[in-house]
Design a protein around this nucleic acid. Structure first.
Lengths: 206, 206
DNA sequence: TAATTATGACTGACTGGTCGGTCATTAACA
DNA sequence: TGTTAATGACCGACCAGTCAGTCATAATTA
């Protein structure tokens, strides 16, 4: 019978603890099935306390999914800015970062959340498109155009459709969270093969 | 004040009407936010009547998503069985069917539902993997192997990862249901460009 | 330094409303 | 008239959000 001690906290820290708990709960059960009391319990506080930091459930949710502003995006933007870095390497780096920072961490659940609950929260979707997707596609477009110029693409027309680059990433997320239990997908192989398909072989004229 | 006449129906027909209503409701609002009374009203009947045909909400949902057994799968299986049909044409046909039968119809919402609610209904996910995904991947594997044998793939190793073929389809579904409102994606171009990337150019050695 | 008071973060029982599922009653049909 | 399908009022579980009260801590005073 663990007696819970009343404990004051730095508001910032408490807020962070609530967000962490909410992250875990929403990841596991989605928006609708998560009870505010679950979040509170997980954060080790009482239900009412949550409401001292967030006006309502929806605000907690949107704050959460918006707050995980892609650290990946920044890294890729950096790589793309440097013209000395081969586009193929930059995109390969993107996949590597994606695997390491999203696919193989709990963040993958968050990405699923956005896919799953998106239509219920247009504000979140709009935010994601504006802040992540559209910027990311811009970077990819630059990289693909550069690769096309240098004759590195097997089919230069894909430079117009940068979405194609994120297709395998999306697939991997969906697969991992839905079907991995029934059939394993080797994401390393997936990304490698895809890169190899997009770009002309490296050793072509060594 | 439209008075609703009590009306007996052929059970099969009634059942179908309920499923159609459920399809509309679940598509629009997801599982949690759909009320059984919404479904009933939409079907033009009283709430209790729904329960004469389905034991509970979950059964209605799983019946619905399982029942839309892919008509596409059969068509593709047919194309793959005929070795005279070029693999590239078969896969191109797959994309065309996918666009016409899923992406541009209300069925796209159903596919989203499976993505979104999948983890909450393992039985549905398992069913989909067993009946659709694993069979579909089998067909694709056959097609890709044949294409590789004939030297038609730019990168033969992808024959091992048939998932790559469904990546753009998945992307198109997600894009259409989340971001299309903010930024248009030309799915025709997406699929065409992707095909062109997978396969060696047609006119190579006519 | 020790006792007293003020603060506001924290608590959890409670409320109001929602919704899945039931069943006694009623209408339609054979 | 007896049988069957349909109805919708009703039940009870559930849960987001509230708020009157509590208490750990800090500030003030002696």
């Amino acid at each position: 019978m663990a007696e819970r001690k009343r404990e004051k906290r730095d508001p910032q820290q408490r807020r962070a603890e609530i967000l962490a708990a909410a992250f875990a709960c929403f990841s596991e059960r989605g928006f609708a099935a998560t009870r505010m009391e679950d979040v509170a319990t997980r954060a080790g506080i009482a239900k009412g306390t949550v409401y001292l930091h967030f006006p309502d459930k929806e605000a907690l949710f949107t704050e959460l999914v918006s707050g995980i502003a892609s650290p990946i995006l920044g890294r890729i933007e950096g790589l793309a800015a440097n013209e000395a870095i081969p586009p193929r390497f930059a995109i390969s780096m993107f996949y590597t970062l994606f695997r390491r920072e999203v696919l193989e961490t709990d963040r993958r659940h968050l990405l699923r959340l956005i896919l799953a609950e998106g239509p219920m929260f247009p504000a979140v979707t709009e935010f994601y498109h504006r802040e992540i997707i559209s910027k990311g596609l811009g970077v990819l477009r630059t990289l693909l155009a550069r690769a096309a110029d240098r004759g590195e693409l097997r089919h230069p027309a894909i430079a117009d459709i940068p979405q194609i680059v994120i297709a395998p990433a999306l697939l991997s997320i969906v697969w991992m969270t839905l079907f991995e239990a029934y059939e394993h997908l080797d994401t390393q192989k997936l990304f490698d093969a895809f890169l190899e398909t997009l770009f002309v072989p490296e050793g072509g004229a060594k």
